[in-house]
Amino acid sequence: MQDYYELVGDNRIAYNMRPASFGILKTEFKLMPPVQVLDVNAEANAEYTDWVTFLAAYPLLSDPMKRILELYNPRARFKQMYLVDRSYGRQELYWVPQIPAQDVLSPETEFHAHDQTLKHLVLDRKKIKGHHFFQPEGLRETCLVVSLRAAESLLRRNLSGFNLQKVSLS
């Protein structure tokens, strides 16, 4: 029996950067160019973590995090995004992921009645079929899930900017 975890942003990060504009982050993945630049505003001591979320549809993954996660899902696609802070002359490579959705939701998954957003995620153990990095199909929001094996790979490399929330299984 394997455990699964949702990747979520770490709200304890004190010095994160902010995008100058959210426009490009609202674009559908298939319409994004393969390489793009996102201007960010950051302090001199801003922490460029391995997992970055900007209240947008996509998390951004650092190059080391992307290299690990693509091993756990060869069908995942990624597009380059350079975060550029012109005031400090800093440029960092990140990746926008498109993770194939998997039909893994349990009927026990709960949604908020007013807007059908996720209230409590429950995955069907039989439907997971050995997937290690995936997005559950049928959710309004982006939700990326990793197996215990994938989570351990991330943790062994001391990657930052995310927390792992254990997912319920049925």
Rank of each mutant, 00 (worst) to 15 (best):
P19E: 07
P19D: 00
A20G: 14
S21P: 07
G23E: 15
L25Q: 00
K30S: 13
M32D: 04
P33Y: 05
P34G: 14
V35T: 13
V35E: 12
Q36M: 13
D39W: 07
V40R: 11
N41F: 15
A42E: 07
A42C: 02
A44N: 12
A44K: 15
D50Y: 01
D50K: 00
V52P: 13
T53Q: 08
A57Q: 13
A57L: 11
P59Y: 02
L60N: 01
S62D: 01
I68G: 04
I68N: 09
L69Y: 01
L71W: 12
Y72D: 07
Y72V: 03
P74I: 01
A76C: 04
A76N: 00
Q80P: 02
Y82D: 03
D85Q: 02
S87G: 01
Y88G: 02
Y88K: 05
Q91N: 13
V96W: 07
P97I: 10
A101D: 01
L105T: 09
L105K: 09
S106F: 15
H112M: 06
H112Y: 10
A113C: 09
A113I: 15
H114L: 13
D115E: 10
Q116A: 15
K126N: 12
K127P: 00
K127R: 10
K127M: 01
G130F: 07
G130S: 09
F134P: 07
Q135L: 09
G138M: 02
R140D: 04
E141T: 00
V145M: 05
V145K: 00
V145P: 09
